[in-house]
């Protein structure tokens, strides 16, 4: 059995918090560049140019792309043949604490949802564990801003609503969000599972590269159809009108109950950040 010190996880989480917030993944940059080339509406085109300029300023000056440096969503895929020495949760939170302090990132977490006092160090992380075969640990940090998180929705559809009902719901969520989540957006969709699993699928869909389609051709074509429908809404970058409302629709699915058709839509802005490292 391989042993890994919890402190090694702290160091990785710290580094990933800073890197994810200052350097946008390559696929997102390419996605925006492509969208800009295809955008024919002047104000939309202008905004996409400013957005690309912003990425480049953040990248070269090593400053956060967006002031909402998010809650730190941390996904650990832990190999079954790994023994972690020390407390994993504490190690992750320590990584977030150090990363948000040393990276000059914003502390945006309140310790209680109703009494609302800032924890001052952006902890705790939103932490997810997954046991997988092997002897490695894969750490993913995805800082999630709440302008887009607030526009997300989940609905327990009926099986009779079918694929048309699911499509209408997804498009309606994007239309209702309008300019609020900083379009152009990335749309994470979860279909199936239980109430809770469905929401997590939608969040995990946002971790997938925007140029990778669902491996199932049925869902890959659904992703393409939804993207086209969303981009015919006319909302455009920042909601000022234009073609580019969404950059990608990523769908993740899971088996579900005979009585149910849960659909979750987790919206992310054009600053869709995530970074991984394998220990």
């Amino acid at each position: 059995m391989r042993e890994i010190q919890a402190s090694a996880i702290t160091a990785v989480v710290k580094r990933l918090c800073i890197e994810a917030n200052c350097h946008l993944p390559q696929d997102m940059q390419e996605c925006i560049t492509r969208a800009h080339a295809e955008e024919d509406w002047p104000i939309a085109s202008e905004i996409l140019e400013r957005i690309m300029e912003n990425y480049s300023i953040a990248d070269t000056r090593n400053v956060p792309i967006c002031q909402d440096t998010g809650v730190a969503c941390v996904f650990l895929e832990i190999g079954q043949d790994v023994h972690i020495l020390g407390n994993i949760k504490d190690a992750v939170d320590e990584g977030v604490r150090q990363g948000y302090a040393e990276g000059y990132l914003r502390k945006s977490v309140v310790g209680d949802p109703l009494r609302r006092v800032n924890t001052g160090d952006n902890t705790p992380a939103m932490l997810y564990y997954n046991l997988v075969p092997g002897d490695a640990v894969r750490v993913t940090v995805a800082p999630k801003g709440f302008g887009s998180e607030n526009m997300s929705q989940l609905k327990m559809l009926k099986p009779s609503d079918g694929v048309e009902g699911a499509k209408d719901f997804i498009v309606r969520v994007v239309e209702e969000a309008g300019p609020n989540p900083c379009p152009p957006i990335v749309v994470g969709v979860g279909i199936g599972g239980t109430f809770d699993q469905c929401a997590l699928l939608a969040k995990k869909a946002l971790l997938r590269s925007t140029d990778a389609r669902n491996p199932d051709p049925y869902y890959a074509s659904l992703e393409a159809e939804l993207l086209a429908r969303i981009n015919s809404l006319g909302i455009g970058p920042q909601g000022f009108g234009g073609k580019t409302t969404a950059l990608a629709v990523n769908i993740e699915v899971a088996p579900t109950h005979i009585a149910g058709l849960p659909v979750a839509v987790n919206i992310n802005c054009h600053v869709t950040r995530h970074k991984s490292e394998v220990l």
């Binding site: 400013r50 912003n54 000056r61 400053v63 956060p64 792309i65």
Partner: peptide, 13 residues
């Protein structure tokens, strides 16, 4: 007024 959301590095200048 609308400022560009998600362009915090640019606007800070």
């Amino acid at each position: 007024f609308g400022a560009i959301g998600g362009a915090g590095a640019l606007l800070s200048k």
